[in-house]
Design a protein around this nucleic acid. Structure first.
Lengths: 251, 251
DNA sequence: CACTGTGAAACCGTTCACAGCG
DNA sequence: CGCTGTGAACGGTTTCACAGTG
């Protein structure tokens, strides 16, 4: 979740739950694979397995979109692909800009998954003058100075921030001021945005930390209770002369 | 969510809700920033703002960890950093392997956020023999053939998959067979894993699709109702002129 | 007296189980 | 008969509001 404030009291006629929206891309991906194999229809059971959810959830999700299945048979693959695409707004293509062309930005620019799903990388933007003009993924990098013009010229409403944390808020502010209303943030910072602007964040180290929590939990279980739990040392072999645990707090 | 099967009926004495666990890294990040600025204490209100949540939620979250605050005062920053780190299992350091050193894998290897939070990139693995030996982020890439040995030698229990979708399940199977029990998956596929193995996934294009959904929604609202909705064509001098919501809304 | 800690209420999402239909 | 679509029960999460305390 990431939406701004109020719950958008708007004229919600068909309010699709957020949790359902988040799964639609998953279904779409599975359906696309079936479509490519020319499978004509799927049951909720089969599709659910392919998408990694249970069938009751899938049926409930689809029920929010309408009654697109046939009882006793299943769902028409092509038809569902279309309906979900339309619901997600992927029948048009969205120009996006990527700001911050470091390792991650470059990876994103090269990522095939964007282009294949209704998104078009309209521009790459970086603050380093040395990068300007250099092509990444076949697209010349432009300088941050021209950010507003680029957004405007391309009618961009979705921006991707892949800058260092320190620059993210500033970049965000400029994107928003220039008219961007949806932001995908890879920088490890909380962005504040005006109402009406959506932010979604992807934080690599947060995901790892969540895994570490569960991992620790598992290790603790083997050896009874919880205690301080030593949790399986990494085979030793040195691991590192450094004291590893960051600690360091300048108090 | 991504956990395998059953709900782990384990010997949970202090069961911390999953939603809370997912927010702990957020709090930790905010606290670390405060710590670096030598701030001694924070109120739930201040910390919540810094982490981008509301204060009631934060207090409830902390209540699952214990009573670490002081009424009338707030929380001791250093102490909380320690408690949360411990809870997340970050007082030890976790060796991780990254499999698939393409653009994304390289970006991950270079990502500073890992090292700074108790994670150590123990090895980089790629299937391309031409990559073998080449250093990325100062770490020589090793060939997939040695995957099992690498996992074992380094006592790795967390693996990151950054391969193309087609290779992901196979890599996953090998990681699991070699002893990895937590996987962060960047490949756009549903991985199936045995019980007891945790998988978290990060899918860049899914995040964009969710944004597109909301973006479309916004566009539709301007022009009444929903109908088939043409939803503003990207070109057309873009969104520029329209006023948008004014703004002002500090977290 | 300010701020934490927490029951209780409200809310949202998931699962169940079956009615309804092709 | 098989599978979808869905009301109803359930469980988890968030929010409220205030009692409790340094």
């Amino acid at each position: 979740m990431a939406t701004g404030r109020t719950h958008r009291p708007a004229t919600r006629s068909r309010g699709i739950p957020e949790a359902t929206v988040a799964r639609l891309p998953l279904y779409l991906r599975a359906l696309t694979a079936l479509s490519e194999r020319s499978v004509p229809t799927v049951s909720s059971e089969e599709l659910a397995a392919a998408a990694g959810v249970n069938s009751a959830k899938l049926r409930k999700d689809f029920s929010y979109l309408g009654s697109y299945g046939t009882r006793g048979v299943g769902y028409d693959v092509e038809y569902l692909v279309y309906q979900i695409s339309r619901e997600l707004g992927l029948t048009q293509d969205w120009p996006v800009v990527i700001v911050g062309i470091g390792n991650l930005g470059a990876a994103l620019a090269n990522y095939g998954g964007f282009a294949s799903r209704g998104f078009r990388v309209a521009a790459l933007i970086d603050a380093d003058p040395a990068m300007a003009g250099k092509p990444v993924a076949g697209i010349p990098v432009q300088h941050t100075d021209d950010l507003e013009k680029i957004i405007d010229d391309n009618g961009v409403s979705i921006g991707v921030i892949a800058t260092p944390a320190g620059a993210a808020q500033q970049v965000c502010d400029r994107l928003v001021a220039a008219g961007v209303t949806s932001i995908l943030n890879f920088a490890p910072t909380v962005l504040s945005v005006p109402d009406g602007v959506d932010v979604r964040k992807v934080d690599l180290s947060i995901e790892l930390q969540i895994l570490a929590f569960h991992e620790q939990r598992k290790a603790g279980e083997e050896a009874t209770g919880e205690s301080e739990a030593v949790v399986r040392a990494p085979k030793d072999s040195g691991k590192g002369p450094d004291g590893d645990v960051p600690a360091v707090m300048p108090a």
